[in-house]
Design a protein around this nucleic acid. Sequence first.
DNA 1: TTGTACGCGTTATCAA
DNA 2: TTGATAACGCGTACAA
Lengths: 362, 362
Amino acid sequence: MPLNARVFVALTRGKKKKGVWDVRRSGSTIKEVAQKAGVSPMTVSRVLNNQDVVRETTKRRVFDAIRELNYRPSIMARSLANGRSLCVGLLYTNPSHGYLSELLLGTLSACRERQHLLVVDKPDEDLLRRDPQYVEQTFLRSSIQALVVAPPLSEDAEFMAKIAAAEIRYIALGPVHWGNGLSVCIDEIAAAEDMTSHLLELGHRDIGLIRGPAAHAASALRFEGYKRAIEKAGIPVDERLIADGNFDYHSGREAARRLLSGDKKPTAIFATNDDMACGAIGFAYEQGLRIPRDLSVVGFDDSPSAAANWPPLTTIRQPVREMAEIAVGLLDADIMTIAPDQRQRVVPHTLVKRESTRPLLD
Amino acid sequence: MPLNARVFVALTRGKKKKGVWDVRRSGSTIKEVAQKAGVSPMTVSRVLNNQDVVRETTKRRVFDAIRELNYRPSIMARSLANGRSLCVGLLYTNPSHGYLSELLLGTLSACRERQHLLVVDKPDEDLLRRDPQYVEQTFLRSSIQALVVAPPLSEDAEFMAKIAAAEIRYIALGPVHWGNGLSVCIDEIAAAEDMTSHLLELGHRDIGLIRGPAAHAASALRFEGYKRAIEKAGIPVDERLIADGNFDYHSGREAARRLLSGDKKPTAIFATNDDMACGAIGFAYEQGLRIPRDLSVVGFDDSPSAAANWPPLTTIRQPVREMAEIAVGLLDADIMTIAPDQRQRVVPHTLVKRESTRPLLD
DNA sequence: TTGTACGCGTTATCAA
DNA sequence: TTGATAACGCGTACAA
């Protein structure tokens, strides 16, 4: 028998007391626990997995050994052996910080529940655009078996096409549906319609809209919702009340500048995301306007800035955490058994009323 | 030979075409690749690991097979085999969203570089407080070998004591040092001193301070920095200019209310985090004050709200991403070889000047 | 330059 | 109720 690694490790272990801070291999194995408890590794495994066949006294012995050795099972070995747990990749580029935070919470808890491994990744956007092989390379090297893709990455047609071609199971978050893939989203049109109706109910009739960038699927849908509500109220859609932004603070400021310096001045502004709403409010302050006394402003997304701003923003909340949980759950299912019309999962949104709006006084 | 799982899988595979959307086992193995390429699994492994001993033609055959079979190596099996990669846990409770986002980026890239597995976890705060066994249980079940703990959790003495007792290697982020553990932080005192000096240079002499909660180690340090700068300028520290908050928006509002309605009115307010600074600005607006014309306000942390607010906040930036990278790197080192005075790693901070301050006009 | 044998830490299967 | 054995997919040591 050659002097192989095993022997070497055994020797090392014998000589040098194994401390917490040893660089590698700080854990004990199931075998060591078994030996200490005077049982077979299999019994230890049974105890760990709550199989109730094990005798109480044996169980106790095993638990004692586990505690003494400070034993922790290895997920790697475990998943390798039972082949049950998936290695799930969570892909995002630049969602808002609040979105990311909730997204993590949701995927995390869903993965833990199913004993899946969550591997978070933020692909480099430049490489994504420039290197056509990047995606392929990345997924060839990694061992990710399933993907959850967050917006705005999930709205990138080119990227999603590559994902589909890479023959990987995936779920997209956001108002999109690509090929055979599943997606989870809110009804963007209905949400925007709700928000617009809310402003109408407060008596506003000249409602400005700050649109999102064309690259985001959500932009067109939110615009559509706005139009529907306006038209249902019997008001013609006025081009002078519509400005374009690209979902960031600065563009919201500029859009508000255009809207408020035109010849048709809105009494309320619906910014189709919170950052733009904050920008609009910033511009309004600069002009000496008071919010909501002189102008009502609403946002969309319920990002952290929505609640932290002054005044706190009325906005639309997506249940991001729940959506993420659903997405991970869907990964388990055999997609072929899901009817095509069930592949886009729509979850309810909420209109969060805060202090950035008030009834129009006439 | 028993009809074991292997045989069963083989049969299944033979019959049913293996599709992308099969619930489990969507990947091919190194053996299958080897067979298709007409080489041994070992050769495939060599190709994958860029060992240049392999003949070019063989390499090409292997790559073709990999592509055809859409093969992806399994990290689990790989780390199990070479024992090199650590399973790193990232623990956080409720840092700001921006902090979390940067934290993730840093740990992610550092882990990928080292082929470590990053497992993110957000422990339940209630369980943490109430169930004394929670931490133990959680780490007993999981196979995390090393921990990166983010503030404010890293400042929880009770929790950190448990971590230490659990005999797990860990790095704390933030201005703390527990037992043998390592930590990475900025010099909070110097940072607060820099910020206060900045206000002094602008001509302010009555500088209000909104302190953080006593539970956070950072609170006392930032206060100390403030005092040092004030005293260096030959100004006595005035109790009437100091108010307490607890790092959230609302407490910042209330603190500003106290400061601005006292008999000693500040011309500048140093809120020791951004959320409180935003709250202070909100209150100032409500009182009809203009920022920075009538009052300068500065924050600390450079959270997203700092840039998104109006006016954009002058604040202190911690290089969170780099700190996280350093932390993961430190996990690799043998801690015992690190001198005790090197165990607390201090990284430089930055004073970010934006538009919430201006020289005092007299 | 390539292949063989074995071990990594765990679970599934079957036998005792 | 427990144990022996063979996988899981890959890398290392050594032989060819």
